[in-house]
Design a protein around this nucleic acid. Structure first.
Lengths: 228, 228
DNA sequence: GCAAAAGTGTTACCGGTACACCCATGT
DNA sequence: ACATGGGTGTACCGGTAACACTTTTGC
C-alpha cells in the first residue's frame, strides 16, 4: 500500500506461469512447452502469459490455460510470487506461479501440440528456463501438502475410477508406496466416495468397482489422509 | 512468461502488504496503521509499500518492515497475491501479502508510533482498508498451518521463555485451550528446546524453568505438533 | 489349477486424550 | 496452611502399520 502518491513508483510486467499437472499411465505428469521467444528460445518452459489490464492473476492463469489446453473451470492454486530482478534476462518480469490439475484425456491435445506441448513424467523433468524448475519443485510440494489433508483426484482422474487408480495416484504424487489395504480403509472412512455398480475389467480378471466423488465432496473437512 | 515480445504488455504498480504478528500479554497481536493517503486516508490498514526497480518482493517487504519497526532479519512468509483490478480505488495495484513474526519488545516502538502504529489483539481487528481484512484472515490461516507442523515461537517469544508462555502462545494462535500436560509432553518429544538452569519467578511462587530454542532448531523435521 | 489383481481381516503397537495427582513456594 | 501456577503419571482408546489371507476370473 502506498507510502505516498502512486505516480512516482515504478511499474512492472506481471506474468503468470502454470505448472500443469496431469495423470496418465500411473504417472504424474507435467505439460511443458518449448519457449517461443528469445531469450532461451526453444528451451523447455512452463506455459505462461502476461497479465492484462482487466485481469486478476487467477483470470490471467485461466486465460492461458484455456488458450493452451482448451479447458475451462480448471482447479488452480497460487504457489508463490517469483521476483528476482534478473530472473528473466529479457526484461524485469514479476511472475506468479500457479499449479493446475487437469484430466489429460479431456484436454485439447491438438491445441497443446500446436504449441509443441509435451507431457513429461514428474520424475524426468528436464532443465527448464529461468526459475521454472524451482516453480515446479514448490508446486509439487504444495500439491503434496494439499493431498495430505484433502482427498484429491477429482480433478486428475476420470469421472469414474477404481480405488487402485486412486491408490496409484497417491503413490505417484508422493513417490512412495502406501499399503494398499490401509489406503483403501482410510479412503472408505472419509466417506466422500460413492461406490458404483459398474466394474472395470480392463486391468484385472476379477474386475474392480468404479467409484466417483460425491457431489458435495469439496465441502468435507478431513483430518489427515497420509503422512507427509 | 512471454507470449510474444515484452514491450506491448501492460505494466502494473506492484506493492507488498505486511501482516505483522507480535505476542504480548498472552495475546497474539497485529500492528496496524492509519492510512496516510487518499483514498481511505485515516482508515486502519496494514503497512505496505511499492516494490522498487531493484527489489524482489521479499526485499521490498523487508525494507518496509525496517522502515516501520526498525528490525532486520525478520521472519517472513508470502501469503498470496491480491490482484482484483479495483481492490485499490486509487489505482491498479497488484499486491503481495506477507506475514511477519516479530518480538514486540524488540521493535522500535518510537518509530512505530511515529506513523501512529498500534498493536491490535487478533480477536479485535477493526475494519480495514480495501482487502486487508482478507489478507489478515489468510495470513492467520497460514500461520496456523505453519504452527501445526513446525514449532514456532522463536520469532515471537523472548530468547528465554517458559513452557507456559509457549503453551499460551499456541492457545492464542489457535484460539483453543490445549491441555497443558499433553502440550508440554509433545514439546519435550520434539527435542528442539533446551532447558536452562534459570527460573522465572514472576508469575508463580514455585518458579518455571526457562527454555530456549536449540541453535539448530530450524533444521528439525517434525511430524505434527497440534491438530488443526 | 494357477497367476494376478481386488479386496478383507487380524494383530500389535504407538500416540493422543482426559484427567488425577504431586511439587514448590510466597503470603 | 493453603492457594497458585508448575510439572508428572497413568489409564484408556483409536488410529495405523505390517502383513496374512480370501475372492474372483481369465488363461
Amino acid at each position: 500500500m502506498p507510502q505516498n502518491s502512486y505516480i512516482e513508483h515504478p511499474k512492472f510486467h506481471v506474468a503468470v506461469d502454470c505448472v500443469i499437472f496431469g495423470y496418465e499411465n500411473d504417472e504424474l505428469k507435467l505439460l511443458l512447452y518449448p519457449r517461443r521467444f528469445t531469450p532461451s528460445k526453444g528451451d523447455w518452459s512452463l506455459m505462461g502469459g502476461f497479465v492484462q489490464e482487466t485481469e486478476t492473476l487467477d483470470d490471467s492463469s485461466r486465460r492461458v490455460l484455456l488458450q493452451t489446453v482448451g479447458l475451462n473451470n480448471i482447479y488452480l492454486e497460487q504457489v508463490r510470487g517469483f521476483s528476482e530482478p534478473n530472473r528473466d534476462p529479457g526484461a524485469r518480469v514479476i511472475s506468479m506461479a500457479f499449479y493446475a490439475l487437469i484430466r489429460i484425456d479431456e484436454h485439447d491435445s491438438k491445441l497443446a501440440s500446436l504449441h509443441s506441448g509435451n507431457w513429461w513424467p514428474i520424475t524426468k523433468i528436464p532443465e527448464l528456463v529461468f526459475d521454472h524448475n524451482q516453480m515446479v519443485h514448490e508446486a509439487l510440494e504444495k500439491l503434496q501438502q494439499k493431498a495430505s489433508y484433502k482427498l484429491i483426484g477429482k480433478e486428475l482422474l476420470p469421472e469414474q475410477f477404481t480405488l487402485t487408480q486412486l491408490h496409484n495416484l497417491y503413490n505417484a504424487i508422493f513417490q512412495k508406496n502406501f499399503d494398499a489395504g490401509n489406503f483403501r480403509k482410510k479412503i472408505a472412512s472419509l466417506n466422500v466416495l460413492e461406490k458404483l455398480a459398474l466394474k472395470d475389467t480392463s486391468t484385472s480378471k476379477r474386475g474392480a468397482y468404479y467409484y466417483r466423488f460425491k457431489d458435495d465432496a469439496d465441502t468435507f473437512e478431513y483430518d489427515r489422509i497420509v503422512k507427509l
